[in-house]
Design a protein around this nucleic acid. Structure first.
Lengths: 229, 229
DNA sequence: CGCCACATTGAACTACGTCAACCAGGGTGG
DNA sequence: CCACCCTGGTTGACGTAGTTCAATGTGGCG
């Protein structure tokens, strides 16, 4: 597959939630410091304990951002799709990172080295503000997500996961129960049990590796139900 | 008590981890847009669901930053002491916040309105970079803390809490078991049980509302023990 | 003196994780 | 074409950490 032209890069930027309000001149400069890279499905892009201050903007495919505890339990934080970024704050952190990223599908990214990103920010002071406006709510929502993980029971978390995924990727969803479990922060078995009850309630239909959501409102409702208690 | 002079404010800034590398000229401008405010112990400074884009820098006392789930369970995220900040990203978030802040002791803060903070950043582009370098690691450590909360068992979390608090406030610690529980993300009872075993192991001594750590190394060791498993 | 906040302990309960067994589909190689 | 194996799904049984509830003790303060 051929590489993106600068114009295609800017096109991508303009359609991403993150960069869409940035002046085109600035985006052109940004495009200039990106390098396109391909990753086969399963490739590890960032590893726990290893320094990596590159900024990644996904062009195609999907990045899975996860963290792994010492006990080997893994939790998926984020699935990064086209136009979204990973590791954007890393240029401002010295040490090794604890988040891991893996190409969840065959993926291509625009990569910016930490050095270049820092210089870019220095030379485009207005861009810093844009970055702030992007990061601040992202932090907030990440925190409330993790908060949910701690406070809510498994059923709620699985339902919430289904809802979030279908909002992001539409229906049907192509995920295995094990993958859902990682996102919901639980075990495969518990996920399966929840999925079984959802199937009985006619909320979802499942085939191997494929989930069709028949009644999204039921997922919402259930969420609210828990909220009220 | 009299208010701080501009020089005293700058003095405070220079001794805070956050602002110590910022040029004095910039700090002078910053001091100019702060307003000193006092809060009696127990005063709520930020409330769940309510918009608040002020930035707070603690001068004296202690701020408790917590979040409360719908079920009423509360978790303390952070205790903010002299020279530290709260809500620093809020000027870049539109909606209501979910974090709550309360004066944990009689507290005075330097308050900067969101509007002023944004303008300050616009007119001091170099300061944005400083802010990035401050925020990025803060996010990281906050995440790994919450991650611990999810992954580690109660004993570990209580010990970790004691360790962190004593690093920040020295020994003896003036906290009740209920307060520790909120920080460790568990119940008062579970905390008490852990404290009881720690007392038996001669790691700590307790009086009502007061904890003296006799053997900090034991807390560290226990931490490592769990890490290895 | 009596109330209130804090501490303490025991006992019951429960949501989940863990383990173990088993099934189904679909690709691969002989 | 069959035998196999591997991945993913499914279910039951069991164990347990930790919450919840309830009772009871205790120091201090108005």
């Amino acid at each position: 597959m051929k590489k993106l032209s600068d114009n295609e890069k800017i096109e991508l930027f303009l359609h991403s939630g993150f960069l869409k309000d940035v002046p085109v001149g600035t985006l052109t400069d940004l495009a200039g410091i990106t390098k396109e890279k391909r990753y086969q499905q399963g490739t590890l892009i960032a590893r726990n304990g290893i320094f990596n201050d590159n900024v990644y903007i996904v062009v195609k495919g999907l990045l899975k951002v996860s963290a792994c505890s010492e006990t080997g339990k893994r939790i998926t934080f984020l699935l990064v799709k086209r136009g979204e970024t990973f590791n954007i704050m890393s240029p401002f952190i010295d040490g090794p990172r604890f988040l891991e990223a893996e190409a969840f599908r065959d993926t291509s990214c625009l990569v910016i080295s930490g050095q270049n990103f820092r210089e870019f920010l220095s030379s485009h002071p207005d861009f810093s503000l844009h970055l702030m406006y992007w990061i601040a709510p992202a932090i907030d929502s990440a925190f409330s997500r993790i908060f949910d993980l701690m406070e809510k029971n498994v059923e709620f978390r699985v339902m919430r996961t289904l809802l979030t995924l279908s909002a992001k990727f539409g229906s049907p969803l192509y995920f295995t129960n094990a993958e859902l479990a990682e996102i919901a922060g639980t075990t495969t078995e518990s996920t399966i049990r929840t999925m079984a009850t959802l199937r009985k309630l006619d909320v979802i239909e499942t085939e191997r590796g494929k989930i069709r959501i028949k009644n999204p409102d039921a997922l919402e409702e259930a969420g609210k139900e828990y909220m009220r208690l």
